[in-house]
């Protein structure tokens, strides 16, 4: 599934990175509102679902090479955050669904969590 499919499933607005969506394949998803948990439990190339909208979330994404971020609960980040993501060519989506429902929709569509893909060789 690519990010474009994710966008459709979540009826999400694209905040930045529209041109990247059909090129980014998503295998793993993580839902969290705690940065340390994202740092500790997330693997590379993971899609993050979060309600955190401060600039640190983009820095976190850069640090661990996330595939993209979906902001949940219709919580839109500030222009500074969108601009920072643009500079890093990093896609941001916004969905009205709350975190639990967003997780459920993607999980039902076949996307796995980070712990389930522990055995996948990632170099």
């Amino acid at each position: 599934m690519n990010l474009k499919d994710v966008q459709r499933l979540l009826q999400a607005e694209v905040l930045t990175g529209e041109e990247l969506l059909d090129r980014i394949e998503i295998e793993m998803v993580c839902g969290s509102d705690l940065i340390s948990d994202v740092l500790a439990f997330t693997k590379e190339k993971t899609l993050l679902l979060t309600g955190l909208t401060n600039p640190q979330i983009i820095r976190t994404a850069e640090m661990i090479e996330l595939s993209g971020i979906v902001f949940v609960r219709g919580k839109k980040p500030g222009d500074d955050v969108i601009k920072l993501a643009e500079e890093h060519h990093f896609p941001l989506l916004l969905t009205k669904f709350p975190l639990y429902e967003t997780c459920g929709i993607l999980y039902s569509a076949g996307l796995k969590g980070c712990s389930e893909l522990d055995t996948v060789g990632r170099g």
Binding site: D33, L34, I35, S36, D37, L39, A40, T50, Q56
Partner: peptide, 15 residues
């Protein structure tokens, strides 16, 4: 509120 301060910083570093 920024998503930090969960008390996982030093444990994460140790890991």
């Amino acid at each position: 509120e920024m998503g930090f301060g969960a008390g996982m910083g030093l444990p994460n570093i140790k890991k």
